[in-house]
Design a protein around this nucleic acid. Structure first.
Lengths: 188, 188
DNA sequence: AAGTCATTGTACCAATCGGTAAACACTTGA
DNA sequence: TCAAGTGTTTACCGATTGGTACAATGACTT
């Protein structure tokens, strides 16, 4: 038998793309074995909990990525305008200029959403909180920060859906371009 | 045998709720028979094309509803500000103040999206076009109308995802409340 | 060189999948 | 009254689902 000796974390990136593209229910084990090149034996060795554990691992991985690359950066960057600028750039890159969907949104819009409710809630409320705090630092009136953060986080999700539906990835960038100046009043 | 004598259009509303709640791939025929009370025989009598035809029928029904209640109203209401106001009110009602997802968005975020690409594209581009035209009538600079329409249509989708993920339907209303004044500059 | 143990392929499982077939019941119009 | 439709039930189909069991395989220790 060939031994490629995969590692759990190597598989997660592939799993993420599969779930992103086919949704949770649309992703079958046979599709996973095909795309990852791993047999069921290996899959269940890494993820004894099966498909659900695979999705959990992927969501955890994504949450960690956003935490370090987006949320932490929002809080740790001293210049708030620069922090916001970096967030928009990071998001544009992560979602490949509108060609990639957000797996959190994909799961939220699927029948599996209650199974991963905790992960979804954490992701979106963390983002909202860190963005709202940064907006306040940037001079947004305190009373408005939370609502503006919701508008932006939601706007990003919607823009991804829109870009996919219109088959026009550019729509994502256009929406981002309109969202950005709303939280950088100085440069608007 | 009992004869309840259902009609095709009676089933569609129920089908819509099932697809909305479970997604396309998450909706099984057994779930459909359970929720509609119809056996497979009846189902295939109304929809010979099976699950795909059921989803098509539902999407067509939704598209028709939006066409008559939202898109046509946008074009036909003489006062553009009033037209936009009515759109936001209609949307808020249709999506049950954020407690209901948009099936178009649900499909767009699922693996079934390419199967229904035409329907999705039509829905979103019609909405964008009619909204953009109304925005122009309302005094939005011509160059900005399309982008603003995209921002709003996308914003609505994203707000639904956000409300569902945060388990806070109110988030939908809050985003709508921020979107509305953006296209009614006079009343802002 | 033997032993350990993570990794892997394969065969298998019951359950469910979407879908078909055909007999049946009831309504309706001729 | 009777045939033609329109619904409806029920049984069934092969394929696929997610998941289990386990023996075989190597890379690494010792």
């Amino acid at each position: 038998m060939s031994r490629i000796v995969a590692e759990r974390k190597d598989v997660i990136a592939t799993l993420a793309e599969i779930f992103r593209e086919h949704g949770y229910d649309g992703t079958s084990l046979s599709l996973i074995t095909e795309k990852t090149g791993l047999g069921k034996g290996s899959l269940y060795h890494f993820f004894p909990g099966g498909k659900e554990e695979m999705a959990e691992a992927v969501l955890g991985d994504i949450a960690a990525w956003f935490r370090t690359h987006i949320f932490d950066a929002l809080r740790d960057t001293e210049n708030p305008a620069q922090a916001l600028e970096a967030m928009f750039a990071g998001v544009d890159g992560y979602f490949r200029q509108g060609r990639r969907l957000c797996l959190m949104g994909v799961i939220a819009a699927s029948g599996a959403h209650d199974r991963f409710a905790r992960e979804l809630n954490g992701y979106f409320s963390d983002w909202r909180a860190d963005l709202a705090a940064t907006l306040e630092r940037a001079g947004t009136p305190k009373a408005e920060c939370n609502a503006l953060a919701e508008e932006i986080v939601g706007g990003i999700q919607g823009a991804l859906i829109l870009a996919r539906s219109l088959d026009d990835p550019g729509a994502f960038g256009r929406v981002l371009a309109r969202l950005k100046p709303r939280c950088l009043p100085a440069s608007a």
